[in-house]
Simulated scan of single mutants.
Amino acid sequence: MKNILVLCTGNSCRSQMAHGYLNALLNGKAKIYSAGIETHGLNPGAVAIMKEDGIDISMHTSNNVDEYDGIPWDFIITVCDHARENCPYIPSKDAKRIHHNFFDPSKVIGTEEEKHTAFLKARNEIKDFCKKFAEKELN
């Protein structure tokens, strides 16, 4: 079984959405973990937008990357530039490292409709990335 780490700054939004999609798409082919270099708790907007697509991430927890010390990673996916640039060294000589800086919907200030649109944009980008990753790397 492959071990996949999805890493973001606060493990509240983008990494959680990717975690949800990878769990659904890979359906037991890999163990998915998400973490942050900090922990900010689950973002309610991320939980809501994923629920709209039939994926429940409400029971996920916001974890610090240090909690997963010693896991032999097959893939480490960073989903924001800040995490990529500030992540502590993760010893895993065999891990394939993949980076994609996704738009951060949690930074959008505006009406509820503007915020929803931002979360939808990020979710769709992450969903497309996860589909391509699953097809390319694990099929």
Rank of each mutant, 00 (worst) to 15 (best):
A48C: 06
G20F: 00
H19G: 01
N27R: 13
V6L: 04
L25G: 04
D94Y: 09
K107I: 10
G54P: 05
F133M: 06
F129W: 15
P88V: 05
Y89H: 11
T111F: 11
V6Q: 01
R84D: 05
L5G: 01
A134H: 04
N124W: 04
N27I: 05
P91A: 08
H82S: 11
I32G: 02
I57E: 03
D69I: 11
G10C: 06
D69F: 12
K29S: 14
K29A: 15
D53W: 00
M50R: 05
R97Y: 13
P88A: 00
H100N: 11
M59Q: 15
G10T: 05
G41P: 09
T111Q: 11
I77V: 14
G41R: 08
C8I: 05
N124G: 05
S106T: 13
V65H: 00
P88I: 13
K93D: 14
L120G: 00
N64L: 10
L22M: 09
I109H: 12
A30G: 11
A118W: 02
T117M: 12
I57Q: 04
D56Y: 09
G110V: 07
L42F: 08
T9V: 13
L25E: 07
C87V: 03
E114A: 13
N23F: 01
K132S: 13
E112A: 14
S12Q: 10
N101C: 13
T117I: 10
Y68F: 15
K96C: 07
N64I: 07
E85V: 07
H19P: 00
H40N: 12
A30D: 11
T61R: 13
T111L: 12
F129D: 00
P44D: 11
L26Q: 09
Q16S: 04
V65D: 01
N124H: 11
V47Y: 02
R123Q: 12
C130W: 02
S62K: 03
I90C: 06
C87S: 15
V108P: 02
A48E: 14
P105E: 07
G110C: 09
G70W: 04
E137W: 02
G54N: 09
L22E: 02
P91Q: 10
A83N: 06
G41Q: 09
D66F: 09
A118D: 04
Y89Q: 09
A134L: 05
I4M: 04
I49N: 01
F103V: 06
G20N: 04
D94V: 08
I4C: 03
A95T: 08
K29C: 08
A83K: 03
K132T: 13
N101K: 12
E137V: 03
P72A: 15
A30S: 12
G45V: 07
E85A: 15
S106L: 06
E125S: 08
S106W: 04
E38N: 11
H40L: 09
K51A: 15
G41S: 11
D104Y: 08
F119W: 06
E114H: 06
G10I: 02
I126N: 01
V108C: 07
I109Y: 11
L120D: 12
M17W: 00
E38P: 00
D81M: 10
D104S: 13
N27K: 15
N43C: 07
N124Q: 15
D94S: 12
P72R: 10
K51H: 11
I109E: 14
Y21T: 02
G54K: 08
G45P: 05
D56N: 14
D56I: 09
